[in-house]
Deep mutational scan, measured.
Amino acid sequence: VKVFRALYTFEPRTPDELYFEEGDIIYITDMSDTNWWKGTSKGRTGLIPSNYVAEQ
């Protein structure tokens, strides 16, 4: 598990995607895809765009 911080707010387009706000901490559990990672924030899990976060 790696810890990342959201650089921007992300509004999901599908139920599989995770909503998060700029500054949120996201725990990444799967980075197997280059563009979409699986992450958890505020008790919810979903896909996030990798270019919206920076490693802490």
Rank of each mutant, 00 (worst) to 15 (best):
K2L: 12
T45Y: 14
S50G: 04
R13G: 10
E22G: 06
P49S: 04
T45S: 14
Y8I: 08
I48V: 15
S50D: 03
R5T: 11
P49G: 03
N51L: 10
G43H: 06
N35Y: 15
S32F: 07
G23H: 05
L18T: 01
D33Y: 04
Q56N: 12
Y27G: 03
I26Q: 00
E22S: 10
D33F: 04
D24P: 01
D30I: 04
R13H: 10
Y27L: 12
S41P: 01
M31F: 09
D30R: 03
E55I: 13
I26P: 00
T9I: 04
K42Y: 09
T45E: 12
F4V: 11
L7C: 11
L7A: 03
T9W: 04
S41R: 15
W37P: 00
Y8D: 04
K2Q: 09
I28E: 00
S50E: 03
A6Q: 01
K2F: 12
F10H: 13
T14F: 12
L18Q: 00
A6L: 04
T34I: 13
D33T: 07
K38M: 15
A6D: 00
I28T: 00
E11F: 15
L18F: 03
N35C: 15
R13T: 14
E22C: 10
T40S: 13
Y8A: 11
F20C: 04
G43R: 03
P12S: 07
T40V: 12
R44Q: 09
N35I: 14
K38N: 07
L7E: 03
F20K: 00
Y8H: 10
Y8V: 07
W36I: 05
I28Y: 01
F10K: 04
T9M: 06
M31E: 04
T40D: 06
W36A: 03
D33K: 06
L47F: 12
K2C: 14
E21C: 08
P15T: 10
G43C: 07
R5F: 14
F20S: 01
E55N: 07
Y8C: 15
Y52P: 02
K42S: 11
E11M: 15
Y52S: 10
L18I: 08
K42V: 03
V3I: 14
V3Q: 09
E17D: 09
V1L: 13
V53C: 03
D33H: 08
R44C: 07
K2Y: 11
P12I: 06
G43F: 04
S50P: 11
P12M: 09
E55M: 12
E55A: 13
P12W: 06
E17N: 03
L7T: 04
L47E: 02
S50C: 12
N35K: 14
N51P: 06
K2M: 11
K38A: 08
A54P: 02
K38P: 04
Q56M: 15
E17A: 07
R5W: 10
Y19K: 10
R44F: 08
V53I: 10
S41Q: 05
R44W: 05
P15K: 12
E11R: 13
E11P: 03
E21I: 08
A6I: 02
V53N: 01
D24F: 04
T34G: 13
D24E: 07
E11S: 13
D30W: 04
I48Q: 00
I48D: 01
Y8K: 13
F4H: 04
T29M: 09
E17H: 12
R5E: 06
D24A: 07
L47R: 09
E22P: 06
E22T: 10
E11A: 11
G39M: 02
S32C: 09
R44I: 09
E17Y: 12
S32I: 11
D33V: 06
R5Q: 09
E55F: 13
E21S: 09
T34P: 15
T29K: 06
T45Q: 10
Y52D: 02
F10C: 04
Q56G: 12
E21Y: 06
W36Q: 03
G43S: 05
D16N: 12
V1W: 13
W37Y: 13
F10P: 01
V1D: 09
E22W: 06
D16C: 10
S41L: 15
N51R: 12
S32W: 06
T14E: 09
W36V: 05
T40M: 14
V53P: 02
S50N: 05
F10N: 08
P12Y: 05
Y8M: 13
T45G: 07
D16G: 12
D30A: 05
Y27T: 08
I25Y: 10
D33P: 05
I25L: 14
G46M: 02
W37E: 00
L18H: 01
S50R: 12
N51F: 10
I26H: 00
E22K: 15
K42H: 12
M31W: 12
T34R: 14
T40R: 11
D16Y: 13
K2S: 08
P15Y: 08
G39V: 03
W37M: 03
N35W: 14
F4I: 02
D33M: 06
M31S: 08
I26G: 00
Y27F: 14
E17V: 04
N35R: 13
S32G: 08
G43N: 07
N51Y: 10
Y27W: 11
K2P: 07
R13N: 12
E21W: 04
V1N: 11
T45R: 08
A6C: 04
P12C: 06
I26R: 00
I28A: 02
D33C: 06
Y19V: 04
E21D: 07
E11D: 09
K42E: 08
T9D: 10
K42R: 14
T9A: 08
L47D: 02
D24H: 02
A54F: 11
T29R: 06
V1P: 12
D33W: 04
S41D: 02
F10L: 05
G39I: 03
D30F: 05
W36R: 05
N35G: 12
D30N: 07
L7F: 03
S32Y: 08
I28Q: 00
G46Y: 03
T40Q: 11
Y52H: 07
E11Q: 14
T29P: 01
F4G: 03
T40W: 15
P15I: 11
E11Y: 15
N35H: 15
T45W: 15
F20A: 04
Y19L: 05
K38L: 15
A54G: 08
T45P: 05
T34M: 14
D30C: 06
V3C: 14
Y27D: 05
G46F: 03
Q56E: 14
M31D: 09
T34D: 14
W37N: 00
Y27P: 00
F4K: 01
G46R: 01
Y52L: 10
N35P: 07
V3D: 02
P49Y: 05
A6R: 01
I26W: 01
F4P: 00
I25H: 05
I26K: 00
G46Q: 00
E17L: 08
L47Q: 05
L7Y: 03
Y27H: 08
Y27E: 10
R44P: 02
P49D: 04
Y8G: 06
K2I: 08
I25D: 06
D16S: 11
I26V: 08
T14L: 10
Q56P: 10
D16H: 12
T9P: 06
Q56Y: 15
Q56C: 15
T14C: 14
F4E: 00
E22L: 10
P12L: 05
I48F: 15
L7G: 01
T45N: 09
I48S: 02
I48W: 03
E55L: 13
T14M: 10
L18S: 00
T40I: 13
K2E: 05
Y27Q: 07
N51K: 11
R13K: 12
G23K: 02
S32Q: 10
E21G: 05
E55H: 09
E17P: 00
P49A: 05
M31K: 07
P15M: 09
P49N: 07
D24L: 03
T9F: 05
T9H: 08
D30V: 04
E55D: 09
I28P: 00
E11N: 14
T34E: 14
D24T: 05
I48L: 14
F20P: 00
T40F: 15
S32N: 11
T34W: 08
